[in-house]
């Protein structure tokens, strides 16, 4: 058996998120920031820069002449998209090839995170009640704890399977078998990466949004987007659809089923696009 301390300490085995990302997230929140500020940061991160150029030249944007400079790419994509891409590029690089314990490939994990980010962003803009880009980042990182917990989960899988029959959710099964869960471990990762408070909150409370200490709307949106992603088959891990939705979150957001359906319809292409983009990038490779 592992102690919770052993598990929480092992977050140090994860590589850190690049500095460029933290800096770009700060710039995105700064109304005074100019495109040139973004360009300066991106120049120092080759992988982020390469991804930016690839996306700018992709079929998504119908450009007449190839985009060759970071300046052009930033102007074309807009700063919000740039931050999203940088987050994706940085995050993609730290995902290991296989995630033991969750019966999930790196692509499967990435696609789930991308789906929660995009669906959350879509719901946020259709409800018009939260900063969509903040929801995107929170969605992308909400299950970060799984990257650490999977290794431990694998070694107790028989136990987890037994617990699943009596447990109300996969998260509860993790807790029963290991004494902690991927939300708690995710918070430890977030602390190590010095992620901003809304992201920490979303990671901690995405399965129990009514316990959020702040950023309630963002947490609620990530919770709902997570459920929707699972329902749509983006993120089928061993938990299946065995997850409890918090009705208070949906009441707080004032959400109706047709809005969920509309978000799903509008997000599908972007989810596929982002999923594909991972398999083309160096994400998941050692």
């Amino acid at each position: 058996m592992f102690s919770v301390e052993t598990i929480l300490k092992s977050v140090t085995s994860l590589p850190t998120l690049p500095v460029a990302l933290t800096r770009l997230t700060e710039l995105a929140r700064d109304d005074q920031a100019e495109p040139a500020d973004f360009v300066r940061v991106i120049r120092h991160d080759a992988a982020v820069a390469a991804n930016l150029l690839r996306v700018a030249n992709s079929a998504l944007f119908h450009v007449a002449n190839p985009v060759t400079s970071i300046e052009q790419a930033v102007n074309l994509l807009g700063t919000r998209r740039v931050v999203e891409l940088a987050t994706g590029a940085s995050f993609g690089r730290i995902i290991p090839k296989v995630l033991p314990g969750y019966d999930m490939t790196a692509e499967g994990y990435w696609t789930h995170c991308a789906a929660v980010a995009i669906l959350g962003e879509q719901l946020a803009s259709s409800l018009g009640n939260a900063a969509p880009d903040a929801v995107f980042t929170c969605g992308l990182l909400h299950d970060i704890g799984k990257l650490v917990l999977g290794t431990f989960l694998m070694q107790v899988s028989g136990e987890i399977q037994r617990q699943l029959h009596g447990a109300t959710s996969f998260l509860e099964a993790e807790r029963l078998a290991l004494g902690t869960d991927h939300a708690e471990v995710g918070v430890a990762v977030a602390a190590r990466w010095q992620l901003p408070p809304p992201v920490v909150c979303a990671i901690r409370s995405h399965h129990a949004p009514s316990t959020a200490e702040s950023d309630q709307t963002v947490v609620d949106l990530v919770h709902v987007a997570d459920g929707l992603a699972h329902a749509l088959g983006f993120g089928a891990d061993r938990g299946g659809l065995a997850r409890t939705m918090d009705s208070k979150a949906m009441a707080r957001l004032g959400l109706r089923v047709h809005q969920l359906e509309e978000a799903a319809a509008l997000s599908l292409d972007s989810i596929h696009g982002m999923a594909e983009w991972f398999s083309q990038s160096d994400g998941g490779k050692p």
Partner: peptide, 12 residues
């Protein structure tokens, strides 16, 4: 399939 949602908002 259905998520566990007692209010049925998620009844897609």
């Amino acid at each position: 399939g259905q998520l566990q949602d007692k209010d049925g908002v998620f009844n897609i």
